[in-house]
Write a protein that binds this DNA or RNA. Structure first.
Lengths: 153, 153
DNA sequence: CCACAAAGGTTTCAAATTGAAACCGCTTGC
DNA sequence: GCAAGCGGTTTCAATTTGAAACCTTTGTGG
């Protein structure tokens, strides 16, 4: 066995992100970071993950620029982990995953949480994919296209 | 070591989906399925994954109701793997992941693909999160709220 | 009809990863 | 001054991964 496969060099821009967050724990750490968790111990308690694993995941997330370490505000020698802008960009992935989970993974009648608009307390709308002109697009109405350079954007 | 951790019973509706698709390959299989791939051999060639691993992942995806097997249309004894409705629900996850990848993982000047509107060939809009009343919401403007029963929906 | 090839897996086995628990160093709190 | 807590690292066995070999069921050429 050579090495655990990495998608780092894949052409596909779905594959490459999985290199950074495509394991069982990383996305949950990011979710907790969105919930305001910052300390090693907080993540460990929330996730119940072994400390060596958490340590490796945090290091990987920092290496990928998803989290960054900042000095602890209480003046202690320790530091805290906070989301970078890149890390906050995962918000839409989390929302999409959560909406899918709400639809297909919630047992009937079980205690249940929604994402809600903080201002009104009402559930947010489902994600939709829209064309440039505003038309809503179904999965079959999109495809991938190649552009040689970014200037076509 | 007891067993590889499963999020199957987690309360969190982000964690539970990861049980179904939270490994290095499953989401790429789903991506290929959206691209129209259906046969074992097609997935294997596209992903370059070992056959035993692909076999296990396809079985898992079928067990989770994300793919289903259908008889091959050419009358051969083999079957094909196609997305279920639940599987097609992952479209938004893939779009979110891809847009994140486009933003943060594409090297400068490298050949590049976009998701485009099939009708016009123009890139699709970025995902946005909206409140019930249509206001666009930033990451910090949402939270999770508990509802005892689904009837509050 | 028989040999041979291809598709679609399964089996085998070594190497890598995971996880639980023990350990370690540094600050506090008492 | 000493125990406790935080934030990890180390150790080591169980599990998972991946490459390659193998098997089984059709399809095909001679």
């Amino acid at each position: 066995m050579v090495k655990r496969t990495s998608h780092h060099e894949a052409d596909c821009l779905i594959a490459r992100p999985l290199d950074a967050i495509g394991d069982w724990w990383s996305l949950l750490i990011v979710r907790d970071a969105f919930d305001g968790l910052r300390r090693f111990g907080e993540f460990q308690k929330s996730l119940g993950v072994a400390k060596n694993i958490l340590s490796a995941r945090l290091r990987n997330l920092v290496a990928h620029g998803i989290l960054e370490t900042v000095p602890a505000p209480d003046g202690s020698a320790h530091h805290e982990y906070v989301l970078t802008q890149k890390g906050r960009g995962l918000f839409y992935v989390l929302v999409a995953l959560r909406q899918w989970g709400e639809t297909y993974f919630s047992g009937p009648g079980e205690p249940y949480t929604f994402m809600v608009d903080t201002l009104t307390g009402r559930p947010i709308k489902r994600l939709e994919v829209h064309a440039e002109d505003g038309r809503q697009l179904a999965p079959g109405e999109t495809r991938l296209a190649d552009f040689r350079n970014r200037e076509t954007e």
